[in-house]
């Protein structure tokens, strides 16, 4: 564990609390992509299957359980409690275009051709692109509530911080995880456009609006 990874994980935690806060205070999940949230459940469940057979640390296990539980809870809130506030007609990204290629990639790129390792690779690739339905929705509506942008920023910062973590680990431990690093760089790259608008508008006190 190093500073960058800890900060990244905390940012990930923060993003989930911001999202829950947004849903609870506005009593609405408007502007949140159900598809992206469902993909996160798939990501966490497939990656954290190792809870059953690998123990890393208490921190690691607690975080894994938290991510699975909170992502399922968010899905529940969107699907049942605040269902009328979710508009599927603007959440139209075709997730099969993500699931299919990620699955094929995981068959090709994995550290061992075993059930759990293939699922692990799949979850890494899927996480990299899971935000696309959300960004697509943002693009369609052209604007977002400020709190939603804070959620997305925290989520983007989380993976961005994993990059210095990997550089640090390379120099201190000689450790390189090419699958996670490649996917992580792609994942962070997807946020660049968003980050640009976030830093130049939202953090200057303006509303998040995309140019028409």
């Amino acid at each position: 564990m190093n500073f960058f990874r800890l900060l990244g994980d905390l940012s990930h935690l923060a993003s989930i609390f911001i999202l829950l806060h947004k849903i609870q205070t506005t009593r609405s999940c408007r502007g949140i992509s159900f598809k992206t949230q469902a993909l996160y459940v798939a990501v966490f469940v497939t990656r954290y299957l190792d809870l059953f057979f690998r123990y890393v640390s208490l921190y690691n296990s607690v975080m894994k359980l938290f991510f699975i539980a909170s992502s399922c809870y968010i899905l529940y809130l969107m699907k049942y409690k605040y269902r009328p506030t979710h508009d599927p007609s603007i959440d139209t990204f075709r997730i099969e275009y993500l699931l299919g290629p990620c699955f094929v990639l995981s068959l090709i790129f994995n550290y061992k051709f075993s059930f759990s390792e293939i699922l692990w690779s799949f979850s890494i690739f899927l996480e990299a692109v899971a935000i696309l339905p959300q960004l697509f929705m943002l693009q369609r509506t052209g604007e977002a509530e400020t709190i939603t942008t804070h959620y997305l920023a925290a989520l983007g910062v989380y993976r961005a911080l994993y990059i210095p973590n990997w550089i640090y680990r390379y120099f201190t431990e000689g450790l390189v995880d090419p699958i996670a690093v490649t996917a992580g760089i792609v994942q962070t790259g997807l946020y660049l456009d968003f980050f640009y608008v976030y830093f130049t508008k939202v953090l200057q006190g303006q509303k998040f609006e995309l140019p028409a």
Binding site: F67, Y111, K112, E117, N165, L175, V176, D177, I179
Partner: peptide
């Protein structure tokens, strides 16, 4: 030395 499938990250 390089053990990529450690999976100790979240």
């Amino acid at each position: 030395q390089v053990s990529p499938s450690n999976h100790d990250e979240l």
